[in-house]
Computed example of a mutant assay.
Amino acid sequence: MPDPRIVVATGPLDVTADFVIEELNRRGVPLARIDTGAFPDSVNLSATFGPDGWRGKLSGGSRTVRLEDLRAVYWRRPSNFPADSVEAGPSREFASREARSGMTGVLYALPGVAWVNHPLAITACTKPAQLAAFVRAGLTVPATWIGNVPQEHGDFCKAGPAVSKTLGPINYDGPEGYQVLYAARVPPEHYGHPRARATANCLQREIEHKVAEYRVAVVADRLFISEASVLGPYLDIRAVGQDGVTYTPGTLPDAVQAGIRTVTRKFGLVFAAWDLVRDDTGKIWALELNPGGQWAFTPDRDDICRAIADYLEEAANT
């Protein structure tokens, strides 16, 4: 079999990546699944720069890819450069920082590589930037406040029902153990609380009377739309659980689809998972897009998988 020209960068437990890997394997497309963020603990990198650019090898587990052969990276959920082989403390922090700079620096410098998605594009896709891009593309968004001023925090909450949301991942590993921080209504006793000064708070006006939610997967301008129906009242669909949500193939107005494509391209993303809501007036609200969102639970799972595999295979054959 030819040497791999695709790297699937993710950790050991990633069901979503598994579907794409199985599809590529079925097609006979060689690939290397390597947890790039596990460098240097269990992943090796040897790169030399010369007149022909960067050459060398990236290897993890039983798989190795030559840097000069690499044509596509499916960047899913690699580890975060823990550098566990170094004693905890400043030395480990330094080793982790250097490992990140070395691995990403070399990969980013390779010419002609197609990314799904490029990490720098993912980093740029912040919630404030998303909301501004949504509006410019003609999409409707809830009123939003971000800040740490208690008085203004309280003013926003008093003006109408408000929910608090995270600005980044909803997973949190703190003193009380692993938690998932779903969207939550702000109780009156927390309006303008002094603790608002402790960090950046994100508040949004609650969308009331929701009729349906949409999960839209975008793959290179192709849209795969699923409509979600929920039994009973809810605030955050992620907290409902799969047994309480029914997904069926859905549709969205052409103007909304055009806005989704425009924003996805604007951020330089090949893949994006969008969340939208329709209220009982028919208005459709754009909530957020996730460059690494899940899609394996949707009715279009197989089509999405094939579309991602198509993109990677075409890049590998270039």
Rank of each mutant, 00 (worst) to 15 (best):
R63F: 04
A198C: 13
A307I: 05
T126C: 11
V186H: 06
E314G: 12
T251Y: 07
Q130F: 04
F134M: 01
P119Y: 05
A47G: 00
H118Y: 06
G50H: 03
A315Y: 04
V230C: 03
F49D: 03
A72L: 14
V20L: 13
P2R: 09
I146P: 06
S226Q: 07
R27D: 09
S85N: 13
H209E: 02
D18C: 04
Q179H: 13
Y214W: 08
E98G: 05
R66C: 11
N317T: 15
S164W: 09
S79M: 07
D221G: 05
A143S: 00
S229T: 14
K266Y: 04
L58N: 05
V263G: 09
G53D: 01
E176H: 15
G56D: 08
E176K: 15
A121S: 08
L131W: 01
Q294R: 11
H118T: 00
R197M: 10
D300L: 09
R97V: 12
G112V: 03
G232C: 12
L13F: 15
F134A: 02
T262P: 09
A17I: 13
V216G: 04
R76N: 02
R100V: 09
I170R: 15
F267T: 00
D155H: 11
A184D: 14
V277S: 05
A133P: 02
Q294V: 03
E208K: 00
V149L: 14
S101P: 00
R71V: 09
E288T: 04
G50A: 11
R92N: 05
T298C: 00
G177L: 10
A258N: 08
K57C: 05
P119R: 07
R136L: 08
W54G: 03
A17C: 00
P150L: 07
L235N: 13
P299A: 12
V240H: 09
V65D: 06
P150S: 02
T140C: 01
E313N: 06
R26I: 11
G244E: 01
A143Y: 00
I237A: 13
D14I: 10
E314Y: 05
A32P: 06
P128I: 02
L167T: 10
R205Y: 07
A198M: 13
T144H: 04
G160L: 07
G177F: 08
W115K: 09
G282Y: 10
V20N: 07
G192P: 04
Q151V: 15
A296M: 01
I170Q: 12
A307K: 00
A200N: 15
V230D: 06
Q151Y: 13
V116T: 14
D69R: 11
E227L: 07
R238W: 03
E152Q: 14
E98D: 12
I170L: 10
L289G: 01
R100D: 02
D221N: 05
W295G: 05
V113G: 04
F19Y: 15
R222Q: 04
A83Y: 08
A32H: 01
Q179T: 14
R195A: 10
G268W: 03
D3C: 13
